[in-house]
Simulated scan of single mutants.
Amino acid sequence: MYIIGAGPGDPDLLTVKARRLIESCDVIIYAGSLVNPEILKLARPGSEIHNSAELNINQIMDIIKDAYERGLDVARIHSGDPHIYGALKDQTSYLEALGIPYEVVPGVSVLTSAAASLGIELTMDGISQAVIIARGSLRIPVPDREQIRKLAEHGSTMVIFTGIHIIDSIVKDLIDGGYSPDTPVGVVYRSTWPDEIVIKGRLSNIATLVHERRIYRTALIIVGDVVDPKFVKHSKLYDPEYVHSFRGVKNGHDR
Rank of each mutant, 00 (worst) to 15 (best):
A87F: 03
I84R: 04
A53Q: 09
A75H: 01
N51T: 06
I29Y: 00
A87H: 05
D81L: 06
K65C: 02
R70D: 04
R70Q: 12
Y94K: 13
L55F: 13
I39T: 12
R76E: 05
V16M: 12
I28D: 09
P45D: 02
R76D: 02
K65E: 12
L13W: 11
G80S: 05
P101W: 02
A67K: 09
I57N: 07
I60R: 03
P82W: 00
Y68A: 12
S47G: 14
L55W: 09
L40C: 12
E38M: 15
L55I: 12
C25L: 03
L40I: 11
K41H: 11
I57M: 14
A31S: 11
A53P: 02
E23H: 01
K41G: 06
S52D: 00
R44K: 15
V35G: 08
L72Q: 15
G80C: 09
G99Y: 10
D81M: 08
E96V: 06
Y85N: 07
I29D: 05
L14S: 14
L40V: 13
D81W: 02
N58Y: 14
T15V: 12
E54Y: 08
C25H: 04
M61G: 02
L98T: 01
E38R: 15
Q59K: 14
I77P: 11
E38S: 15
E23C: 09
N51A: 11
L95V: 06
I60N: 01
K17V: 05
L55Y: 12
R44G: 06
G99S: 10
D90A: 10
T92W: 00
I39E: 11
L88C: 11
S33M: 05
Y68H: 15
S47H: 14
G32C: 03
L88N: 07
L55E: 08
I77H: 09
I84L: 15
I29Q: 01
L21K: 12
I49F: 04
I84M: 09
E54D: 09
I60M: 14
L98P: 04
I28M: 14
D62I: 02
P45S: 01
Y30W: 12
I100H: 00
E48G: 09
Y85H: 10
G80T: 07
Q91A: 01
L21P: 04
A18L: 13
I39A: 10
I22Q: 03
